[in-house]
Amino acid sequence: MAKKNPAKAPAAPKKVEELMTGTTVFNVPMPADLKALKGMSPIVIKQPYQIDYIHSYGQDSPFFAGLSNGKLLGTKCRKCDYTWANPRLACTHCGRETEWVEIPQSGRVHTFTTCYFGGEEFLKETPFHLVLVEFDGVDTLFLSRLIGPVEPEEIRIGMKVKAKFRRNSQLKPSDVYFVPAE
């Protein structure tokens, strides 16, 4: 993989990347004298592992239905007057059941980063910006992607941002993302 550093032009790699491809081996050598086995190199095999989970969002499902309808839904405890940007069925402070509320679609960058590497699932999407968004009237933050700026230097804490929604919902929290609003 190419080295990624905004401060430098791409450089030729310094070492060879390990690959998960290879030759299938059916037989390995065996010494006649079993004492020689103590000096044997380890056998390393490839072991694929793939699963489709049947994953339920359970009581948080309305949040995802909201995203596919262009709404940000959080929950509120009326007794504690505390609003969560991501829903939770019960209030952390008093334990009572919360109610669904719509939260604002405009906010400010509370903090941010630009990821040049990532977990394997997201590696092909790098570089990308992560932001925690703060909203007026909401007590917690909201993790999302920020689309638009190219370099991290173009993002600043306190910057106004607004929500945008994917036209074709994937029923994932990435159905919403934020763009600069100033």
Binding site: G118, E125, S174
Partner: peptide, 30 residues
């Protein structure tokens, strides 16, 4: 990079992981 994905499963898989689960990204924001 698969290891980084495994580690990122130690973040909420409903709300956090699918945004781009990566612990170095979380600490960078902090």
């Amino acid at each position: 990079w698969k290891g980084n994905e495994f580690i990122a499963l130690a973040s909420d898989v409903n709300f956090d992981y699918p945004i781009g689960g990566f612990y170095s990204g979380y600490y960078a924001m902090m």
